[in-house]
Design a protein around this nucleic acid. Sequence first.
RNA 1: AGCCUUGUCGUCUAACGGUAGGACUGGAGACUUUGGAUCUCUAUACCGGGGUUCGAAUCCCUGCGAGGCUACCA
Length: 563
Amino acid sequence: MSDSTSPEEKKSLNFIEVVIEKDLNEGLNDGRIQTRFPPEPNGYLHIGHAKAICLDFGLAQKYGGACNLRFDDTNPVKEDVEYVDAIKEDIKWLGFDWANVFYASDYFPQLWDFAIQLIKEGKAYVDEQSAEEIAKQKGTPTQAGTNSPYRDRPIEESLELFAKMNQGVLDEGSMVLRAKVDMASSNMHFRDPIIYRIIKQAHHRTGNQWYAYPMYDFAHGQCDYFEGVTHSVCTLEFVVHRPLYDWFIDSLAASNYRPRQYEFNRLNLTYTVMSKRKLLQLVQENLVTGWDDPRMPTLSGYRRRGYTPQSIRNFIDKIGYTKYDGMIDVALLEFAVREDLNKKATRVSAVIDPIKLVITNYPDNQTESLEAQNNPENPESGSHSILFSKELYIERDDFMEEAPKKYFRLTPGQEVRLKHAYIIKCTGCKRDDLGNVTEVYAEYDPQTKSGMSESGRKVKGTIHWVSTQDAIDIEVRLYDRLFTAEDTSADKGIDFKTLLNPNSLIVKKGCKAESFLKTALAYHQFQFQRIGYFNVDPDSNVDQLVFNRTVTLKDSWGKIKDQ
RNA sequence: AGCCUUGUCGUCUAACGGUAGGACUGGAGACUUUGGAUCUCUAUACCGGGGUUCGAAUCCCUGCGAGGCUACCA
């Protein structure tokens, strides 16, 4: 066999792709591939959802199939249209599009009919016990459950009561419809699962049309079937639900077509809380400014933080799909953004901790315009002009009066290159009464302007700067990750309020900066250990910046981790 | 405890039963129109024990570990 695949094509298939290719080869479902992305509209999408989105939509794309967006809205108590809209926006932002938008609530009539069918077949019954009694009878994983006294009630009676459940005359919790499966099964989901319950709250789409609502287990597989989904992909915690999924499909499927469920490992990220419950709590208790707070691990949060959709998709692509529960190092996500932004973002300069630099031999009132490349890694990206003048701001720590040997920046007697401008030689500095440096002095060499013949001269260091005339003040808000504990995989007894990163909100540092361009990436001498994105004032024309290097964050994380 | 899923470098992830590879992270170095870029080098892994086989990460048995399940949530 000749194998002429390029390295790109040689990327190994994930286990679901293997299944699909096998199904395709066997001509299953007439060679049709259909998936769905089924969020419950009860919150915003987070980075974990991106993994499911990339798979659901990606599989359909790769195999010429269709992927529907289906809102799993079977519980009106938790759901809202606000979330529906936000979810659509975030999927589109990631660059995917759905074949159709469906709602589980679209299928309420069909599900209702199917429930009646089950009752008539003696496979479902109305139970009038309390939730507590039902739970008690369920038994434990090692102990069989006991049958409900209503389990063998006449079919007619169940039919009558089921109809009544949907009339709005019964209290919530007064009765439920249960499937009659096996109270002794080792799979707890087989112990006569509840499939309909009474909820007397308006649904965001169907209003007060229904009072009896199907449970997830009774809705999901059937919706897949009604829609023609062939490969229903979900996360690992639904593995134990699959037998029940199949049980219902067995009773429902008339043709040779049937949907199949496959499960992959959900995304766990270090230092990142993915629990929707906790994210909701953060929003509700105003600990963050909203679902799209740049500290949130939501897609809208990452978006505001400056992440590109491509970087998130690249990240998902790197981590792969398996069936083993792991914990991905968030450094991989951050690598993905850097990798993408390095190629795209416009480089600008920002001086965060300014000190004045005076070029003593530069004419007092002269200014000149210099060209700065937008992105050195991409020659096509063009350039923008920056203003040079006698007085500049540079970073305070780019100057040292008495420098160690390997200090390549400004120190008396040493030359450095001013980025995009001239080579200068430091001549000294001025100090105030307390001994703090207030001004630094240097002389420039006019022959060394960027691009000139002399400009090739070797100097040991390059520093960035902004002109005092051209500089604008901006308020910088530095955001870092919201959470600090490495393993935040929820419900481990962590008080989530302690997870708020004390370093996450550094709202200060008025600073001088040159005019920024949109989606700017600042490279400079500051040391942020982790890449930190920050948004600037909405009134300025800057959307986002990327700052690198810090010295403080890593240390504090270490301490918190050790406690 | 029972059932289900699952164990490959620190972390993710590959390898028709045939050389354990890649990426991130870490370390070292080079390079100076900033560099956390780029380039070079480098470290670290098949959970243990038995089998089957010429040959096992891969198949079988067994032990151990991890995660999930016992919601009128999804």
